[in-house]
């Protein structure tokens, strides 16, 4: 049996201790964090916007289709769309997409730096490369992913409205009544917890894959793919665990 997974898990845990160290120069770390926040936040907004609007639209259209001819009031569609967006679709779909966009980018960036000896060069200068190259990315993700997830939820609900009301699937007042009914602020808390946990997973897993890459361009491509696949699997696993823990 191959125990590689245990080796990587142990290595990953040990590595966390090197990342969260006192910065050599707070100003440099701050600058890098701002740059990463821009890359993650502004850089990912267009794709998050597009995906959210279509996910919201499809959710509303399909619920409308399933509820046609039932005794469930039409305004329930707004309520269901809102809660699905907040609890599940916005955090999970957004973070799966971000794992593909941001995660693979981080793995490729760090892997490229490793191969071109940039990381070695920084190490020899005395820089704690694990901290300087990874901590700003994780902090930026922890700050920006919840913002993107909130935006995704709002855009998704707007997408549901735009796709359904003008074509007459239900009325505007039904939809608005739906999204204002049975609101549980706790669901927003669940969404934010998911956003933070998923943001941490997608950055730290992707950075790990890139930082420890060995070999040439084929290995770099593989590391980038692994970053996305492992992040996605762990995000879905964490989604299940959070659902059990916070809703049980």
């Amino acid at each position: 049996m191959n125990f590689n997974i245990f080796h990587h898990f142990g290595n990953f845990i040990q590595w966390q201790g090197q990342i969260y160290r006192r910065p050599e120069n707070g100003k440099m770390y701050y600058k890098e964090t701002i740059r990463q926040m821009y890359d993650i936040g502004i850089g990912s907004f267009p794709i998050v916007f597009l995906i959210s609007i279509f996910i919201g639209a499809v959710t509303a259209v399909q619920f409308s289709y399933q509820m046609t001819g039932t005794l469930i009031p039409a305004y329930y569609i707004g309520y269901i769309v809102r809660d699905m967006e907040i609890i599940e679709l916005a955090p999970t779909i957004t973070c799966l997409v971000l794992a593909g966009k941001v995660g693979s980018n981080m793995a490729a960036e760090l892997g490229g730096m490793r191969q071109k000896e940039h990381i070695d060069a920084m190490e020899i200068m005395g820089v704690n490369t694990s901290a300087y190259l990874v901590m700003p990315k994780v902090i930026a993700a922890l700050l920006m992913v919840p913002v993107l997830v909130c935006a995704s939820a709002i855009i998704g609900i707007a997408g549901a409205y735009i796709a359904s009301v003008p074509v007459g699937l239900f009325t505007s007042s039904d939809f608005i009544k739906g999204i204002r009914s049975f609101f549980e602020p706790y669901n927003v808390f669940i969404m934010l917890v998911k956003a933070v946990v998923f943001g941490y997973i997608l950055t730290s897993v992707s950075c790990y894959q890139g930082y420890f890459v060995k070999g040439g361009s084929i290995e770099l491509g593989e590391a980038s793919t692994r970053a996305v696949v492992y992040s996605n699997i762990l995000i879905l696993l964490a989604d299940y665990v959070i659902a059990i823990v916070l809703t049980a």
């Binding site: 071109k116 000896e117 060069a121 020899i124 200068m125 005395g126």
Partner: peptide, 16 residues
């Protein structure tokens, strides 16, 4: 090690 490395300069094969 960190203090020592600040006294070391290195030129890499690919310049890095």
């Amino acid at each position: 090690l960190r203090k020592l490395r600040m006294q070391v300069g290195m030129l890499f094969q690919g310049s890095a």
